[in-house]
Design a protein around this nucleic acid. Structure first.
Lengths: 201, 201
DNA sequence: CCAATATTGATACGATCGTACCAACAATTG
DNA sequence: CAATTGTTGGTACGATCGTATCAATATTGG
């Protein structure tokens, strides 16, 4: 049986995320999620039992998409040996461009804000993704610095934190309609141009 | 009469913000806010009528504190002619250091996320504060560039957007417990050191 | 001092929430 | 075929929500 129970779970979680993206995560109740997914309330209970488990599963479902999105960006980036291209690909992912990306970041941010006052959500490992990203970027920048692509005086660890802060901050400003994703991308490129100085000539 | 009705309003709104900072904005109901403020439910209704108006008033109350906080930072910064000191003072305000600052930024971020799916909140002018800040910073950086404090190749507008993105991103990471405010401040200074190169000698 | 006006409090109502319970049907197994 | 198990649906219950209504007290103006 292709799909089976997993297909039902996915159907419900997709409904949750679609609803959270359109009306906000706070409007997601067991009933509204069921209606959005086109199933009965009982079915949502059957697969997720409690609302808290549903919310956690929604966060998992959201986080599970991240590796795939990143891989697609890296594949589209082409040269995987060029550190700047990799950095650009990785962090362009943080800017909400299309609608799917916008929903992703809005819901992820909603969860992050909730986790600030909800210990159950704060304990979820998926909100630790930025930590891994920070380590990954630090290593990448250290290698680039040894290869002479970064000024010798650069601090790879600090630059990694800065890159994540810039992409998160720009992403949020796009999310709130303060800027278009194109404008944000231009500013991001401006930052990258300074981080990776062009070799003379 | 010192205070009068305004004192009551303030008392209730302080309760709202205190509760939103401790348990999250989503736990703020007419009743929980009344209990937190030590007044009756009816009193909250009397002063704010509807929950939506209470929430908007809470956002106003929050935003009304910003100019004072900024002024205090500027006064503590000392030299108001040094553009770097001004930038540092303005944006250090975005890092949640003490508890009051943490509540401020958590609640403000909660409102911002809500505004992404709530047209009533999105129409509130208080969420436009970053736009004004961006204009202010751009002007400041332009002046600094003409004074030779910034490299001639710098783009003041892009740098202003970057500064706001960095401070917002760092502030969020502190809010989520990813970093201490001291670590964030160090990274922020690292960014400022590059933005304002030391004159030789 | 008395009336009217503003302020504060207790309570009620309908709606929605998360959750639990019970019935119907499908699939599987002896 | 009968019976057990897994899956889906309808509905009920207590709690809490926003809001409205009614009563009591404090304040003010004649």
């Amino acid at each position: 049986m292709p799909g089976g129970p997993d297909a039902r779970r996915t159907q419900i979680l997709d409904g949750l995320l679609r609803l959270a993206g359109r009306r906000g995560l706070h409007t997601a109740s067991m009933r509204t999620v069921a209606a959005e997914a086109g199933v009965s309330l009982r079915l949502v209970q059957y697969y997720f039992e409690t609302k808290e488990k549903l919310l956690v599963a929604g966060l998992e479902h959201l986080a599970a998409r991240m590796p795939g999105r990143l891989a697609a960006r890296l594949a589209a980036a082409g040269d995987r040996e060029d550190p700047r291209a990799v950095v650009e690909a990785v962090l362009a992912e943080a800017l909400p461009t299309d609608e799917e990306s916008r929903v992703f970041h809005l819901v992820y941010t909603s969860y992050a804000v909730l986790s600030a006052t909800d210990p159950v959500l704060a304990a979820q490992p998926f909100l630790r993704a930025p930590d891994e990203m920070e380590r990954f970027l630090t290593g990448l920048l250290e290698t680039a610095r040894h290869a002479g692509r970064l000024p010798a005086a650069s601090d790879p660890a600090a630059e990694a934190v800065l890159l994540l802060a810039v992409s998160a901050g720009l992403g949020t400003s796009v999310l709130l309609g303060q800027r278009t994703s194109g404008e944000a991308m231009n500013v991001f490129h401006y930052h990258l141009d300074r981080l990776f100085p062009e070799p003379a000539g």
